[in-house]
């Protein structure tokens, strides 16, 4: 059974442990600005929303890459950036309609969530179960993904 990240804004307290864990896993340092999961703050409502790549089926980033630097991890379904191949052209960053693949000026390459190879650190670090890694079918995550994708007319063109 394929697992996926389930993000539940209602449970998020904005503690940013996920961003700390993500950057520590990827960079070996606590640097939330480089985390590929981000918590957004809604001041008016006093709410928070964790957000990262949904590993969408359309894989806009993968399809747009001119040098085949983004591939799919068959075991997790994650779309993964191969640093050695990425030239930093940024075409994927404008192609992804979810805004979840970003250019990193320090490295000259793009970065996105790779599900930590199937053991995502953000989910382990989250103290309130706002981020969980569970069976894809059992989550409302699919609904969230579908909701985002149905807003895009050209998402319907895959046969």
């Amino acid at each position: 059974m394929q697992k996926s990240l389930h993000l539940d804004p209602a449970k998020c307290t904005g503690c940013l442990q996920c961003e700390m864990a993500c950057s520590y896993e990827k960079l070996g340092e606590f640097n939330p600005s480089r985390s590929v999961i981000k918590v957004f703050t809604f001041h008016e409502e006093g709410r928070f929303a964790p957000y990262t790549c949904t590993q969408c089926d359309e894989a806009w980033c993968l399809r747009a890459c001119p040098v085949d630097a983004i591939t799919m991890d068959m075991s997790t379904g994650a779309k993964i950036v191969i640093d050695d191949k990425c030239v930093g052209c940024k075409v994927c960053t404008i192609s992804c309609p979810f805004g979840t693949i970003n250019y990193v000026q320090e490295t000259g390459k793009v970065a996105k969530c790779d599900l930590c190879g199937g053991d995502p650190e953000c989910a382990k670090a989250c103290p309130t179960e706002a981020i969980t890694y569970i069976d894809a079918n059992a989550t409302g995550y699919d609904r969230m993904k579908a909701f985002a994708e149905k807003s895009l007319p050209s998402a319907n063109t895959s046969a």
């Binding site: 404008i94 192609s95 309609p97 979810f98 970003n102 990193v104």
Partner: peptide, 13 residues
């Protein structure tokens, strides 16, 4: 440079 793709998402959606 951050989350720039949502501009496409909002326009196309």
């Amino acid at each position: 440079t951050q989350h720039i793709g949502v501009i496409r998402g909002l326009i196309e959606g």
